[in-house]
Design a protein around this nucleic acid. Structure first.
Lengths: 225, 225
DNA sequence: TGATGTGAAGCGGTTCACAGCC
DNA sequence: GGCTGTGAACCGCTTCACATCA
């Protein structure tokens, strides 16, 4: 078991490192230094070393890291040596898009099914992926050994589905609902808010100016006593 | 112009606050306190106040915030009072999925077109959204006043397209390419890595154990001198 | 009284810089 | 000489706690 808490920022980077290594490996490279990785992929070398050092001593001083060996380590650390089955809650626009996307792009995750409440959709298929009744999600979790739930429904039903998934024994959830959700501590919840992403870009385009035309942080109107 | 640098974490939250306020407004509420917002949406009240205080004094002590007035402020701060035109680079699985998603879910962003290099796709339409030759992106930017680029292509061509967009005058980019990209400072780049998201969940499911079975942080093998 | 706005403290993550090892 | 592994410094964001004001 883990000795200390590893931050999500770290695990995210491990995933990126892994794909960088894939690229180097494909290019026929054998070893790489943290500095080399950093320069090539616009990362920070100290950060790479620190991230890796959380899990062991994988490098050789004066040389660097053996690419294939490090890949194996990262794959095991991230748990990508086993397949994980995924259920997508919500077979609307986003849910089907994600199913489509992950179906071909991911090799370690397998979409077991889409789940929806709309009777029009239930029983249909998206390619080879069946669409089930959302009510059957708990039993599907057990039957198909689903480990990951992806929430792709409107904001108003997202919390209910998260609760449903939690009750069904799911411990890893990725939510695309544009709303803050709450879950028990033992459940890992990742939220990707596609609306927020664009809004935040809009902010940078806008160059906000106060309606009064004053400075954003105006004269604090109080002089220190 | 802005007095001080506002962090992206802050602008992301402003977007969330805005949608929380939308919800309260629809529910007929008139005013809300930072504490009320915090409790209802699982946020921190001090954080809300600090975020808002970056842009002015919108609240009334002893009362709270006028919901509709605060919404107006946030809309203007985020630049959501104007429409922004968006070009999606990559008309593959992910690009079309995003186009579909944003077409119906967003009111302030308008998909001007999809752009791809595949001759099979160029000239076709996705619903009402035309698919153009990626080479024509720069001219489309000028013609259609495109302000935001969404990169939805494989890792290997992502950097090239980012450079192309930058040259075309785009200053806000959202990338779904699973690779670190580099851009000039004046360009706002947001990366959403759907692969990393799942990998990171896998980590939490895996409960990493060292192959040696030892502690993750083993005896450092050196005793302080 | 009750809620804002905000300095100060706290915390976590990143970067630096170097000792230790190949 | 070169690169890892890592304590320490640094930095920025979050949270606290309270003075301030309707």
């Amino acid at each position: 078991m883990k000795a200390e808490k590893i931050s999500e920022l770290t695990t995210n980077r491990l995933s990126v490192y892994l794909r960088c290594l894939d690229e180097l490996s494909t290019a026929g490279e054998k070893t790489v230094s943290s500095g080399g990785l950093a320069k090539r992929f616009h990362l920070n070398s100290a950060q790479i070393r620190k991230d890796l050092a959380n899990f062991g001593e994988f490098g050789v001083r004066g040389v660097g890291y053996d690419i294939d060996r490090l890949r194996e380590h990262l794959i095991r650390i991230l748990g990508l040596n086993k397949k994980h089955r995924v259920g997508i809650l919500g077979a609307g626009r986003l849910g089907t898009a994600l199913a489509d996307y992950y179906r071909l792009n991911q090799t370690n995750f397998e979409i077991a099914g889409l789940f929806d409440a709309d009777p029009e959709l239930i029983g249909k298929k998206l390619g080879s992926i069946p669409i089930f009744d959302i009510k059957d999600f708990p039993s599907a979790v057990k039957r198909d050994n689903i480990k990951v739930a992806v929430i792709a429904v409107p904001a108003r039903s997202a919390q209910d589905l998260l609760d449903l998934a939690a009750e069904a024994g799911i411990r890893a959830v990725m939510s695309f609902a544009p709303i803050p959700l709450r879950s028990a501590d033992h459940i890992k919840l990742k939220t990707v808010d596609l609306t927020t992403c664009l809004d935040s870009l809009a902010y940078h385009l806008a160059g906000y100016e106060n309606p009064d035309g004053q400075e954003v942080k105006p004269s604090p109107k109080k002089r220190r006593k």
